[in-house]
Computed example of a mutant assay.
Amino acid sequence: MDRTHGSGGKFTQAAERAADSKGFERAARVGYVASGVLHALIGIIAFQIASGGGGNADSSGAVAALSQQPGGIFLIWFCFVGCIALALFQASRAFLDRGGDKKEVWKKRATDAGTAIAYGAIGVTFGIFALGGSSDSEQSQVTWTARLLSQPTGQLLVGVGGAVIAGIGLYFIYKGLTQKFREDLGPIPGQTWQRTATVTGIGGYTAKGISLLILGGLVIAAAVTADPEKSTGLDGALRTLNEAPLGWLALGAVGVGLIFYGLYMGLIRARFGKL
Protein backbone atom coordinates (compact mmCIF):
# COMPACT_ATOMS: atom_id res chain seq x y z
CA MET A 1 0.00 0.00 0.00
CA ASP A 2 2.80 2.37 0.93
CA ARG A 3 4.58 1.65 -2.31
CA THR A 4 1.41 2.20 -4.31
CA HIS A 5 0.71 5.41 -2.45
CA GLY A 6 4.29 6.56 -3.05
CA SER A 7 4.08 5.73 -6.72
CA GLY A 8 0.75 7.52 -6.99
CA GLY A 9 2.23 10.54 -5.24
CA LYS A 10 5.11 10.65 -7.66
CA PHE A 11 2.70 10.35 -10.58
CA THR A 12 0.59 13.21 -9.18
CA GLN A 13 3.68 15.40 -8.74
CA ALA A 14 4.81 14.63 -12.28
CA ALA A 15 1.35 15.48 -13.61
CA GLU A 16 1.36 18.76 -11.67
CA ARG A 17 4.81 19.65 -13.03
CA ALA A 18 3.63 18.87 -16.56
CA ALA A 19 0.53 21.04 -16.07
CA ASP A 20 2.67 23.89 -14.71
CA SER A 21 5.03 23.53 -17.68
CA LYS A 22 2.13 23.64 -20.14
CA GLY A 23 0.73 26.71 -18.40
CA PHE A 24 4.13 28.43 -18.60
CA GLU A 25 4.41 27.53 -22.28
CA ARG A 26 0.99 29.04 -22.98
CA ALA A 27 2.04 32.22 -21.17
CA ALA A 28 5.30 32.26 -23.14
CA ARG A 29 3.38 32.04 -26.43
CA VAL A 30 1.70 35.32 -25.49
CA GLY A 31 5.16 36.84 -26.02
CA TYR A 32 4.91 35.97 -29.71
CA VAL A 33 1.49 37.63 -29.80
CA ALA A 34 3.03 40.73 -28.20
CA SER A 35 5.80 40.78 -30.81
CA GLY A 36 3.17 40.44 -33.50
CA VAL A 37 1.17 43.38 -32.16
CA LEU A 38 4.31 45.53 -31.93
CA HIS A 39 5.51 44.79 -35.47
CA ALA A 40 2.04 45.21 -36.97
CA LEU A 41 1.77 48.65 -35.35
CA ILE A 42 5.24 49.63 -36.59
CA GLY A 43 4.22 48.47 -40.08
CA ILE A 44 1.05 50.57 -39.95
CA ILE A 45 3.01 53.66 -38.85
CA ALA A 46 5.60 53.06 -41.60
CA PHE A 47 2.79 52.81 -44.16
CA GLN A 48 1.36 56.09 -42.83
CA ILE A 49 4.74 57.79 -43.22
CA ALA A 50 5.02 56.49 -46.79
CA SER A 51 1.56 57.97 -47.44
CA GLY A 52 2.67 61.38 -46.18
CA GLY A 53 1.48 61.02 -42.59
CA GLY A 54 3.38 61.16 -39.33
CA GLY A 55 4.23 58.89 -36.45
CA ASN A 56 7.24 57.28 -34.82
CA ALA A 57 7.94 53.91 -36.48
CA ASP A 58 9.82 52.17 -33.69
CA SER A 59 8.92 50.15 -30.61
CA SER A 60 8.33 53.15 -28.31
CA GLY A 61 6.26 54.93 -30.97
CA ALA A 62 4.16 51.83 -31.58
CA VAL A 63 3.46 51.25 -27.87
CA ALA A 64 2.71 54.96 -27.37
CA ALA A 65 0.17 54.77 -30.21
CA LEU A 66 -1.35 51.66 -28.62
CA SER A 67 -1.60 53.38 -25.21
CA GLN A 68 -3.79 56.09 -26.75
CA GLN A 69 -6.40 53.59 -27.98
CA PRO A 70 -9.49 52.66 -25.93
CA GLY A 71 -8.52 49.73 -23.74
CA GLY A 72 -4.94 49.98 -24.96
CA ILE A 73 -3.50 49.88 -21.44
CA PHE A 74 -4.97 46.41 -20.88
CA LEU A 75 -3.38 45.12 -24.09
CA ILE A 76 -0.06 46.70 -23.05
CA TRP A 77 -0.16 44.84 -19.72
CA PHE A 78 -1.09 41.64 -21.58
CA CYS A 79 1.89 42.07 -23.92
CA PHE A 80 4.22 42.93 -21.02
CA VAL A 81 3.36 39.72 -19.16
CA GLY A 82 3.72 37.65 -22.33
CA CYS A 83 7.13 39.09 -23.24
CA ILE A 84 8.51 38.57 -19.74
CA ALA A 85 7.15 35.00 -19.66
CA LEU A 86 8.77 34.22 -23.02
CA ALA A 87 12.06 35.86 -21.95
CA LEU A 88 12.15 33.77 -18.76
CA PHE A 89 11.24 30.63 -20.68
CA GLN A 90 14.06 31.15 -23.20
CA ALA A 91 16.51 32.04 -20.43
CA SER A 92 15.70 28.79 -18.64
CA ARG A 93 16.21 26.90 -21.90
CA ALA A 94 19.67 28.47 -22.24
CA PHE A 95 20.67 26.94 -18.88
CA LEU A 96 19.02 23.58 -19.55
CA ASP A 97 20.45 22.96 -23.05
CA ARG A 98 22.92 20.08 -22.81
CA GLY A 99 23.90 16.75 -24.37
CA GLY A 100 24.93 15.94 -27.91
CA ASP A 101 27.50 17.89 -29.89
CA LYS A 102 29.03 20.68 -27.77
CA LYS A 103 29.14 23.10 -30.68
CA GLU A 104 25.42 22.65 -31.31
CA VAL A 105 24.66 22.96 -27.59
CA TRP A 106 26.47 26.30 -27.33
CA LYS A 107 24.85 27.49 -30.54
CA LYS A 108 21.44 26.65 -29.08
CA ARG A 109 22.34 28.35 -25.80
CA ALA A 110 23.40 31.50 -27.63
CA THR A 111 20.17 31.52 -29.64
CA ASP A 112 18.02 31.02 -26.54
CA ALA A 113 19.94 33.69 -24.61
CA GLY A 114 19.63 36.14 -27.51
CA THR A 115 15.90 35.51 -27.76
CA ALA A 116 15.54 36.00 -24.01
CA ILE A 117 17.35 39.35 -24.17
CA ALA A 118 15.32 40.51 -27.19
CA TYR A 119 11.95 39.71 -25.62
CA GLY A 120 13.09 41.05 -22.27
CA ALA A 121 13.87 44.37 -23.97
CA ILE A 122 10.47 44.42 -25.68
CA GLY A 123 8.87 43.59 -22.34
CA VAL A 124 10.66 46.53 -20.69
CA THR A 125 9.20 48.87 -23.33
CA PHE A 126 5.68 47.57 -22.68
CA GLY A 127 6.32 47.72 -18.92
CA ILE A 128 7.40 51.37 -18.97
CA PHE A 129 4.17 52.40 -20.69
CA ALA A 130 2.07 50.04 -18.55
CA LEU A 131 3.33 51.87 -15.45
CA GLY A 132 2.43 55.23 -16.95
CA GLY A 133 5.88 56.21 -18.20
CA SER A 134 7.25 56.82 -21.69
CA SER A 135 10.43 56.20 -23.64
CA ASP A 136 12.15 57.29 -26.82
CA SER A 137 13.91 54.44 -28.63
CA GLU A 138 15.65 56.76 -31.08
CA GLN A 139 17.08 59.05 -28.39
CA SER A 140 18.17 56.05 -26.33
CA GLN A 141 20.10 54.64 -29.28
CA VAL A 142 21.74 57.99 -30.00
CA THR A 143 22.72 58.29 -26.32
CA TRP A 144 24.23 54.81 -26.13
CA THR A 145 26.04 55.32 -29.45
CA ALA A 146 27.51 58.58 -28.13
CA ARG A 147 28.72 56.83 -24.97
CA LEU A 148 30.38 54.08 -26.97
CA LEU A 149 31.99 56.56 -29.37
CA SER A 150 33.53 58.40 -26.41
CA GLN A 151 35.52 55.26 -25.50
CA PRO A 152 39.06 54.67 -26.88
CA THR A 153 37.88 51.88 -29.20
CA GLY A 154 34.37 53.29 -29.51
CA GLN A 155 34.28 53.66 -33.29
CA LEU A 156 35.37 50.05 -33.74
CA LEU A 157 32.77 48.79 -31.24
CA VAL A 158 29.96 50.79 -32.88
CA GLY A 159 31.08 49.63 -36.33
CA VAL A 160 31.08 45.99 -35.24
CA GLY A 161 27.64 46.47 -33.70
CA GLY A 162 26.34 47.92 -36.95
CA ALA A 163 27.84 45.05 -38.93
CA VAL A 164 26.16 42.54 -36.60
CA ILE A 165 22.76 44.24 -37.03
CA ALA A 166 23.22 44.30 -40.82
CA GLY A 167 24.25 40.63 -40.74
CA ILE A 168 21.11 39.75 -38.79
CA GLY A 169 19.12 41.67 -41.40
CA LEU A 170 20.68 39.64 -44.21
CA TYR A 171 19.90 36.44 -42.31
CA PHE A 172 16.27 37.49 -41.91
CA ILE A 173 16.02 38.09 -45.67
CA TYR A 174 17.61 34.69 -46.35
CA LYS A 175 15.32 33.03 -43.79
CA GLY A 176 12.28 34.55 -45.44
CA LEU A 177 13.14 33.90 -49.09
CA THR A 178 14.22 30.30 -48.43
CA GLN A 179 11.28 29.67 -46.04
CA LYS A 180 13.74 28.56 -43.39
CA PHE A 181 11.31 30.01 -40.86
CA ARG A 182 9.32 26.79 -41.21
CA GLU A 183 11.97 25.08 -39.08
CA ASP A 184 10.62 27.08 -36.13
CA LEU A 185 7.13 25.66 -36.62
CA GLY A 186 5.46 22.38 -35.80
CA PRO A 187 2.83 20.69 -37.99
CA ILE A 188 0.35 23.15 -39.52
CA PRO A 189 -3.08 21.69 -40.37
CA GLY A 190 -5.11 22.79 -43.37
CA GLN A 191 -4.26 24.59 -46.60
CA THR A 192 -5.48 27.95 -45.33
CA TRP A 193 -3.08 28.00 -42.40
CA GLN A 194 -0.29 26.68 -44.65
CA ARG A 195 -0.78 29.50 -47.17
CA THR A 196 -1.03 32.09 -44.39
CA ALA A 197 2.26 30.86 -42.93
CA THR A 198 3.96 31.01 -46.34
CA VAL A 199 2.77 34.51 -47.30
CA THR A 200 3.28 36.14 -43.91
CA GLY A 201 6.58 34.35 -43.32
CA ILE A 202 8.19 35.25 -46.64
CA GLY A 203 6.90 38.84 -46.69
CA GLY A 204 7.44 39.42 -42.99
CA TYR A 205 10.98 38.11 -42.64
CA THR A 206 12.09 39.87 -45.83
CA ALA A 207 10.68 43.23 -44.70
CA LYS A 208 12.13 42.85 -41.21
CA GLY A 209 15.50 41.99 -42.76
CA ILE A 210 15.47 45.06 -45.01
CA SER A 211 14.71 47.35 -42.07
CA LEU A 212 17.52 45.79 -39.99
CA LEU A 213 19.93 46.03 -42.92
CA ILE A 214 19.29 49.77 -43.25
CA LEU A 215 19.49 50.21 -39.47
CA GLY A 216 22.87 48.45 -39.42
CA GLY A 217 24.07 50.71 -42.23
CA LEU A 218 23.15 53.82 -40.22
CA VAL A 219 25.03 52.51 -37.18
CA ILE A 220 28.10 51.85 -39.36
CA ALA A 221 27.78 55.40 -40.77
CA ALA A 222 27.73 56.73 -37.19
CA ALA A 223 30.94 54.78 -36.49
CA VAL A 224 32.74 55.97 -39.62
CA THR A 225 31.83 59.63 -39.09
CA ALA A 226 31.97 59.49 -35.26
CA ASP A 227 28.54 61.15 -35.32
CA PRO A 228 26.05 59.47 -32.94
CA GLU A 229 23.17 61.46 -34.48
CA LYS A 230 23.37 59.21 -37.55
CA SER A 231 22.38 56.20 -35.39
CA THR A 232 18.70 57.06 -35.38
CA GLY A 233 17.11 53.69 -34.66
CA LEU A 234 14.43 51.89 -36.62
CA ASP A 235 12.34 55.03 -37.20
CA GLY A 236 15.37 56.77 -38.69
CA ALA A 237 16.14 53.73 -40.85
CA LEU A 238 12.63 53.67 -42.30
CA ARG A 239 12.65 57.45 -42.87
CA THR A 240 16.01 57.10 -44.65
CA LEU A 241 14.37 54.57 -46.96
CA ASN A 242 11.51 57.00 -47.54
CA GLU A 243 13.95 59.71 -48.68
CA ALA A 244 15.39 57.55 -51.48
CA PRO A 245 14.08 57.79 -55.07
CA LEU A 246 10.65 56.11 -55.05
CA GLY A 247 11.32 55.63 -51.35
CA TRP A 248 7.65 56.08 -50.49
CA LEU A 249 6.88 53.00 -52.57
CA ALA A 250 9.67 50.97 -50.96
CA LEU A 251 8.69 52.13 -47.47
CA GLY A 252 5.05 51.28 -48.16
CA ALA A 253 6.08 47.78 -49.21
CA VAL A 254 8.26 47.37 -46.10
CA GLY A 255 5.37 48.64 -43.97
CA VAL A 256 3.05 46.00 -45.43
CA GLY A 257 5.80 43.42 -44.92
CA LEU A 258 6.15 44.37 -41.25
CA ILE A 259 2.39 43.97 -40.86
CA PHE A 260 2.81 40.50 -42.40
CA TYR A 261 5.60 39.80 -39.89
CA GLY A 262 3.26 40.85 -37.10
CA LEU A 263 0.59 38.48 -38.42
CA TYR A 264 3.14 35.69 -38.71
CA MET A 265 4.31 36.14 -35.11
CA GLY A 266 0.86 36.70 -33.62
CA LEU A 267 -1.07 34.06 -35.56
CA ILE A 268 1.40 31.44 -36.83
CA ARG A 269 4.39 31.46 -34.48
CA ALA A 270 2.23 31.91 -31.39
CA ARG A 271 0.00 28.98 -32.34
CA PHE A 272 2.27 26.56 -34.18
CA GLY A 273 5.77 27.58 -33.09
CA LYS A 274 8.07 25.10 -31.40
CA LEU A 275 9.01 25.87 -27.81
Results as ranks from 00 to 15, higher is better:
93 R>F: 08
90 Q>R: 10
263 L>A: 11
82 G>T: 13
89 F>M: 02
111 T>A: 08
87 A>S: 13
160 V>S: 01
224 V>E: 06
115 T>W: 00
231 S>L: 02
241 L>T: 10
149 L>P: 02
274 K>P: 00
202 I>L: 06
123 G>D: 10
248 W>H: 10
13 Q>V: 03
148 L>P: 00
18 A>D: 06
142 V>H: 10
272 F>V: 09
136 D>H: 14
16 E>R: 06
23 G>Q: 14
128 I>A: 01
118 A>I: 02
116 A>W: 08
52 G>E: 06
210 I>G: 04
231 S>M: 08
66 L>Q: 08
163 A>H: 00
7 S>Q: 11
230 K>S: 05
200 T>D: 02
161 G>L: 06
143 T>Y: 04
236 G>L: 02
83 C>F: 09
133 G>K: 02
261 Y>N: 06
246 L>P: 00
154 G>T: 11
149 L>G: 02
254 V>L: 04
124 V>L: 14
1 M>S: 07
15 A>N: 08
7 S>L: 15
94 A>T: 14
56 N>A: 15
23 G>A: 14
83 C>M: 12
157 L>P: 02
19 A>C: 10
85 A>G: 08
258 L>H: 04
87 A>C: 06
54 G>W: 02
8 G>Y: 11
132 G>V: 07
135 S>D: 05
56 N>T: 15
99 G>Q: 10
233 G>M: 06
186 G>I: 04
112 D>H: 15
203 G>L: 15
117 I>T: 14
187 P>M: 03
28 A>C: 04
248 W>E: 03
274 K>S: 08
144 W>A: 08
79 C>W: 14
98 R>G: 09
251 L>R: 04
80 F>C: 15
2 D>C: 01
194 Q>T: 15
23 G>I: 12
225 T>D: 09
214 I>G: 01
264 Y>R: 07
273 G>S: 13
196 T>A: 13
135 S>C: 05
2 D>H: 07
129 F>W: 04
234 L>S: 15
34 A>G: 10
85 A>V: 12
107 K>R: 15
99 G>F: 14
236 G>R: 02
113 A>Y: 02
179 Q>W: 05
256 V>W: 01
123 G>P: 03
124 V>E: 01
91 A>I: 04
139 Q>G: 02
87 A>N: 02
70 P>N: 15
120 G>K: 12
73 I>F: 00
82 G>R: 10
28 A>K: 03
163 A>L: 06
191 Q>V: 10
79 C>T: 12
191 Q>L: 10
66 L>A: 09
80 F>E: 15
146 A>P: 08
1 M>L: 05
250 A>V: 07
150 S>M: 05
175 K>Q: 08
9 G>T: 08
275 L>E: 05
48 Q>G: 07
273 G>E: 13
21 S>N: 05
43 G>Y: 09
138 E>R: 15
93 R>K: 14
27 A>Q: 10
172 F>V: 00
11 F>L: 14
4 T>N: 09
167 G>N: 04
265 M>F: 13
83 C>S: 15
225 T>W: 01
83 C>Y: 12
94 A>H: 09
126 F>M: 06
172 F>M: 08
92 S>P: 00
154 G>D: 12
69 Q>L: 12
67 S>D: 12
158 V>L: 01
263 L>G: 01
185 L>R: 11
56 N>E: 15
69 Q>V: 06
221 A>S: 11
